[in-house]
Each structure stands twice: as C-alpha cells, then as structure tokens.
Amino acid sequence: MPENLCQQALERVLTYLDDDGVVLTTDACRRALRLVETAMGQGDGPDLPARCVDSIPEYFNYPHAHIPDATPPLNRGRIGYD
C-alpha cells in the first residue's frame, strides 16, 4: 500500500474530527491511529480514507449538534400557477 494513502487516511480522520469540534488530544490521536490501523488490516485500496471516515462513530463518541426546528413552522403556499 502506498505510504501516501495511509497518510491521507489519517489526515482525513483528524481533519474530520477537528472540523466536528473534537479536541485532538493525545488520546484522540491514538484512537485515530488505531482506527486507521484496523482499516488497513481489512485490506488496502483507494477506498481506505473513506472506510476510515465511515468508521469514526465506532471509535469516537461525541455529541452531535442539535438543530432546532424552524419557528414559526414553515407552510407551503400556492402562488397561483395552474
């Protein structure tokens, strides 16, 4: 497996976590490394970074932001086209 693909997978996982607000502590980075190592053990291939990102919920538990409902409720209307 090209070294570049492994680096790309780890970079995507860390970027995804950072963008989602996860603090990249030493423990978080170790879990990210284990995630990539496990995915590499399941086979190499160009889909490695995608498989790693798909596995993030198995390794990281973090709250998802709650998006409030629209207020007032949205209603569809008719503007007169026939």
Results as ranks from 00 to 15, higher is better:
Asp82Lys: 13
Leu24Gly: 07
Tyr81Pro: 13
Thr26Ile: 05
Arg78Gln: 11
His66Thr: 08
Ala32Lys: 01
Glu58Ala: 10
Arg76Phe: 05
Tyr62Pro: 03
Leu14Trp: 03
Pro63Glu: 09
Asn4Ile: 04
Glu3Met: 05
Gly41Leu: 10
Arg30Trp: 00
Gln7Asn: 07
Arg76Tyr: 01
Ala28Ile: 09
Cys29Asp: 02
Pro46Gly: 13
Leu48Ser: 09
Asp20Phe: 00
Asn4Arg: 03
Gly43Val: 13
Glu58Ile: 12
Thr71Arg: 15
Pro2Lys: 15
Tyr62Glu: 08
Ala50Cys: 05
Thr38Lys: 15
Asp54Val: 04
Asp27Val: 04
Pro72Tyr: 08
Leu33Cys: 09
Glu3Ile: 04
Ile67Ser: 04
Ala32Ser: 03
Pro73Glu: 11
Ala28Cys: 02
Thr38Cys: 14
Pro57Val: 09
Val53Pro: 00
Pro46Phe: 04
Cys6Met: 03
Glu37Asp: 14
Val22Asp: 08
Asp54Thr: 10
Leu24Ala: 06
Ala39Trp: 00
Gly21Lys: 06
Cys52Gln: 03
Gly80Ile: 04
Asn61Lys: 13
Met1Ala: 15
Leu33Tyr: 02
Val22His: 08
Cys52Thr: 01
Asp44Ser: 09
His66Phe: 07
Ser55Asp: 14
Leu33Val: 12
Asp82Pro: 10
Leu74Cys: 13
Pro73Tyr: 13
Leu74Arg: 15
Asp69Cys: 04
Gly41Glu: 06
Val13Cys: 08
Thr38Ala: 15
Ala65Gly: 10
Tyr59Thr: 13
Ile67Phe: 03
Thr25Arg: 08
Thr15Asn: 06
Leu24Ile: 07
Gly41Ser: 10
Asn61Cys: 15
Tyr62Cys: 10
Pro68Asp: 10
Arg78Thr: 11
Pro2Ser: 12
Leu33Asn: 12
Gly45Gln: 10
Asn61Thr: 14
Tyr81Asp: 15
Pro2Gly: 14
